[in-house]
Nucleic acid binder design. Structure first.
Length: 510
RNA sequence: GGUCCCUUCGUCUAGUGGUUAGGACGCCAGGUUUUCAUCCUGGAAACAGGAGUUCGAUUCUCCUAGGGACUGCCA
């Protein structure tokens, strides 16, 4: 590594489908660590499996990171000094490194067909064992270790398909590594098998490509999901076989499903009604649509904040963090070892916090398109801003502002039956007619305070029940028993509208 | 099955060899709002089990149980 002091980390997803929220969190922790250390955040596309490549997945990954605000410094879009950043475009070099290992006798050719391997596996299974391609079995398989050099030469000349396997050291030893999150993690080589490094289709496997690229790209810290922990010893051994310094590893805890067993999956989202993907995704094959946080109305800052607290905590009681605050506060010392169950309710709470803290003008701007969708002629910016300020504390999402404020734009067509039954009775209906006449006759300034004063006086004069009248008036104006201060509503609705809504209610409710 | 990782309220988590085991989400109750929501106050709610070390373990060690990941010419 040329420059040991500068931190270089990478997020290396495989374009086999939409990026999972767990993937975004992995990217986030890489990003935070890079920014905190003035380092470089790299995006590398690991597309070595041609059979699993999904169209549009790479664009999806890039757009997801962009939406999440995780800008990378080097990657397939903007390039960099260590490109290309797609493994398919680095294809040529991997063979060279595989050959290097063969030369050093750390790897060998294996000619076993998929069928032969399947057979070996099922035979072992019927014996109650598990087949492992390792020092005990490799000599009974078809490879350059078991065959004579002439035989191998001939097979190669005949263009017999083959893979290149790593030769796990025969001498039993413990492979240890100091993980940034887990501390010392140890495996015995005798438990490990001879993994394929180079496939018959001319592409490297993840293990080879990953180690070679991390080395070539001068990656200093490998921050990835816990699912990679079992392959850590192989990777350590590969670095050693190449004679390279290994990066520092950090294996992140998994994100588990909200209920039941196992890690979070796409199905959980469908079942429990929350997104597992940052952006909406339409499967190019089935046309199935999977929900996204963006489309569901989450703010990227809230999404990122929520994700950061899933597996990491600041050690203080602070829960709301801007991206900059996260960069400063983040530390691997405070990343948990155990998997974290995802809680959709808490995700909503985060969004609510961000929504409430947003300036009313900004929310009004975001609310505009929702109104347009509802066919409402948008009011002035000032008016809309005021409406938003009155109802924003009641919602978690911009789209929900509609149900809390629709009555400001559209007169109610229906009235909450329960409220009507409880309030709209006795001498109230008759009084409501008088109230409409009163409002109609108001010639003084139309503002909440003075209207409240006058109406209160009227109620007192007629010896009406204040609560009954107020709730009935609310029912007439709003259609239900919810919403902000009643006289503020009266003021904002303006005289004609208030009068007409009361008369309409009197007519409809009798 | 094998290997490895993990284990504090329902969930996310803080924490210490001696604490009333703290906070947040959610839930419940009361207050404010003559509505609803917000907000405020309060409440229920956890150290997986068993040994050992120790004057004393939730904290250290071991075992058990439970959970998870991996075990592919997938990543």
């Amino acid at each position: 590594m040329s420059n040991r002091n500068s931190v270089r980390v990478r997020f290396a997803p495989s374009p086999t489908g939409p990026l999972h929220m767990g993937g975004v969190r992995t990217a986030l922790f890489n990003y935070l660590f890079a920014r905190q250390n003035g380092g470089t955040f790299i995006l590398r596309i690991e597309d070595t499996d041609q059979t699993r490549y999904v169209n549009g997945a790479e664009d999806y990954i890039i757009e997801s990171l962009k939406w999440s605000g995780l800008e990378f410094d080097e990657g397939p879009v903007q390039g960099g000094n260590f490109g290309p950043y797609r493994q398919s475009e680095r294809k040529a070099q991997y063979r060279e490194y595989a050959d290097m290992l063969i030369e050093k006798e750390h790897a060998y050719f294996a000619f076993d067909t998929a069928e032969e391997l399947d057979q070996a596996r099922s035979e072992a299974e019927s014996d109650g064992r598990t087949f492992s391609y390792d020092e005990h079995t490799r000599l009974s398989m078809k490879n350059s270790l078991s065959l004579s050099s002439d035989e191998v030469k001939k097979l190669l000349q005949d263009e017999m398909p083959y893979v290149i396997r790593f030769k796990m050291p025969e001498q039993a030893e413990a492979v240890e590594d100091e993980d940034m999150i887990r501390g010392k993690v140890s495996f015995r080589t005798s438990d490990l098998d001879d993994k394929v490094l180079f496939k018959a289709d001319g592409m490297p496997t993840y293990h080879l490509a990953n180690v070679v690229d991390d080395h070539l790209m001068e990656v200093t810290h490998v921050i990835r999901g816990e699912e990679w922990l079992p392959s850590m010893p192989l990777h350590v051994l590969l670095y050693r076989a190449f004679g390279w310094d290994k990066p520092v590893f950090a294996h992140l805890p998994l994100i588990l499903k909200p209920q039941g067993k196992g890690k979070l999956s796409k199905r959980d989202g469908d079942k429990l009604g929350f997104p597992v993907f940052p952006l909406e995704w339409t499967d190019p094959e089935t046309k199935e649509v999977a929900a996204g946080y963006r489309e569901d109305g989450y703010f990227p800052e809230a999404f990122i904040n929520m994700l950061a607290l899933l597996g990491w905590n600041p050690g203080t009681e602070q829960e709301l963090f801007s991206k900059e605050e996260l960069v400063n506060a983040f530390s691997f010392d405070r990343v948990n070892k155990s998997g974290a169950r995802f809680d959709p309710e808490k995700a909503k709470w985060f969004n609510h916090q961000y929504l409430v803290n947003k300036p009313d003008e900004e929310l009004a701007g975001l609310f505009g398109p929702v109104l347009a969708e509802k066919g409402v002629v948008p009011p002035s910016v000032d008016h809309l801003t005021r409406i938003v300020s009155l109802v924003k504390e009641r919602v978690s999402f911009v789209a929900d502002l509609w149900e809390q404020s629709a009555f400001f734009f559209v007169a109610p067509e229906e009235y909450d039956a329960k409220v009507a039954k409880k309030r709209w009775k006795g001498d109230v209906p008759a009084f409501m007619g008088q109230l409409a006449d009163f409002f109609d006759g108001v010639s003084t300034s139309w503002d909440a305070d003075s209207l409240k004063e006058q109406v209160s006086a009227l109620i007192q004069e007629k010896e009406m029940n204040f609560g009954g009248v107020m709730n009935s008036l609310r029912l007439a104006l709003v259609g239900g028993s919810f919403g902000p201060d009643l006289f503020t509503i009266v003021e904002m609705l303006e005289k004609d509208e208030v009068v007409s809504r009361i008369r309409k209610a009197v007519e409809k409710l009798g």
